[in-house]
């Protein structure tokens, strides 16, 4: 079909030669292969460091700017709107509302998953309306999930928590 299409009055034959994956397998093209070995260790910083320390205690923490009155989660130590330091830390509830969700049947390298993952953006109760974070939903019937449903965090037992977003196992619908 490409041969039939015209792009007058520019050059008749566009450049671009298609290879097949098997050209690499069979060695019918020359190629080099490189697997980078890169490792990183990130300090979690002031805002997220405290957020994760609170997670370990089973609490959801946020920061508050008294100028624009926003309660920020994920927390930051500065208000990007007023461009000033935040004023205080507050503890939010571990409940909220599904802003949106998806049901993912593939991994990042497009392999099929037997049990789908259900990522969702959860707006957390007590934060500025609509503010929340990404997490996972656990449900027996994903077809019954709806945007706007109320959810609650299911925490790992205290001794298994290590100061990570995964200290919350997932959220579950509560109504």
């Amino acid at each position: 079909m490409n041969e039939q299409a015209s792009l007058a009055p520019v050059v008749p034959q566009l450049i671009g030669t298609n290879l097949r994956t098997r050209d690499f397998r069979t060695g019918s093209v020359f190629f080099e292969y490189y697997k980078p070995k890169l490792e990183y260790a990130w300090d979690t910083g002031k805002a997220i460091g405290k957020f994760l320390a609170e997670m370990k205690k089973g609490r959801v923490a946020a920061t508050h700017c008294s100028k624009c009155k926003r309660t920020l989660v994920p927390p930051r130590i500065f208000c990007e709107k007023c461009f000033r330091d935040i004023d205080k830390w507050v503890t939010l509830k571990d409940t909220g509302v599904i802003e949106t969700f998806s049901v993912s049947f593939v991994t990042w390298d497009v392999k099929r998953l037997e049990k789908p993952q259900i990522p969702a953006v959860i707006a957390i109760d007590g934060a500025t309306p609509g503010y929340g974070f990404l997490h996972l939903i656990n449900t027996k019937d994903w077809k019954a999930l709806r945007v706007g449903q109320r959810v609650k965090a299911v925490w790992k037992p205290a001794h298994q928590r290590k100061g990570s977003i995964t200290d919350i196992k997932y959220f579950e619908v509560i109504e």
Binding site: Y40, W42, T44, I48, F51, L52, P74, E99, T100, F101, S102, V103, S104, V106, T107, W108, Q117, P119, A120, V121, F133, L134, H135, L136, V147, S164, I165, T166
Partner: peptide
């Protein structure tokens, strides 16, 4: 790197989340 990558996300998530919204 702190709040999302531990959940093992993939790029399709953001599109499907946005489309559903």
């Amino acid at each position: 790197n702190f709040l999302e990558r531990p959940l093992k996300p993939n790029l399709l998530w953001i599109f499907s989340l946005e489309m559903n919204r």
